[in-house]
Amino acid sequence: MELALFLKSMLVGFSMSAPVGPIAVLCIRRTLVFGRLSGLVAGVGAATADSVYAMLAGMGMTLVANVLMEYHTVLRALGGVALLGMGITTWRSAVSCMRLPGASSGFWSTYVSTLLLTLANPLTLFLFAAVFASVGMDRFTPNYQTAVLLVGGVFLGAVLWWFLLSGLINCLRGKFTRHVLEVINRISGVVLALFGVAALVSIIVQ
Rank of each mutant, 00 (worst) to 15 (best):
T146Y: 07
T114N: 01
F155I: 01
M69Y: 10
L84P: 08
L119Q: 03
G87Y: 09
L75T: 00
T89R: 15
A77Y: 06
V67R: 05
A130V: 06
F107G: 13
A120C: 07
V135N: 04
A94M: 11
T146F: 10
S134T: 12
G87S: 11
A94W: 12
A158T: 11
V148R: 10
E70W: 06
R99A: 07
G136W: 02
A94Q: 12
V64E: 01
L117G: 07
L160H: 05
T114A: 00
V74N: 13
D138R: 00
V151K: 03
T90H: 13
Y71K: 05
L125C: 05
G157A: 03
R99P: 04
Y71L: 08
L160Q: 08
M86A: 14
A130E: 07
T73Y: 15
F128G: 07
L123Q: 04
A65T: 14
V81N: 01
F126A: 11
V112R: 09
M69P: 12
G85F: 07
M86Q: 06
L119T: 00
T124P: 14
L100S: 11
L84M: 13
S104C: 02
P101C: 03
R76L: 15
M137V: 02
A129Y: 06
G106D: 09
G153E: 03
L149Y: 06
M137K: 03
N121M: 09
R92D: 14
L78D: 01
V131M: 11
F140H: 06
Y71D: 10
T90F: 13
A120S: 15
A129R: 11
L115T: 10
V95F: 13
L100Q: 12
S113Y: 02
Y111C: 08
L149T: 01
L119Y: 06
L123C: 06
T114C: 04
L116I: 04
I88R: 02
T90K: 15
D138S: 10
L117A: 13
R139K: 11
S93A: 15
L84A: 15
R139P: 00
G157C: 02
L119G: 07
G85M: 11
S104R: 07
V154A: 07
L160D: 05
A120D: 07
A103S: 08
W161E: 09
L116E: 07
F126N: 04
V112Y: 01
G136Q: 06
A103N: 03
P122G: 03
L78A: 08
Y71S: 08
F140W: 14
A147Y: 01
G80P: 13
S105Y: 01
L156K: 03
S109R: 14
L127C: 08
P142L: 03
N66W: 06
F140C: 09
L125G: 09
V131N: 07
Y144D: 05
Y71C: 05
F155C: 04
L125D: 08
A129W: 05
R76D: 15
S96K: 09
R92V: 08
S109G: 09
M137C: 06
E70H: 09
S113F: 02
A158C: 10
T110L: 04
T110R: 02
N143C: 11
L78I: 10
G157D: 00
M69T: 08
T118V: 12
L156S: 12
G80Q: 06
F132I: 03
A77Q: 09
P142D: 01
W161R: 09
A103E: 14
V67N: 02
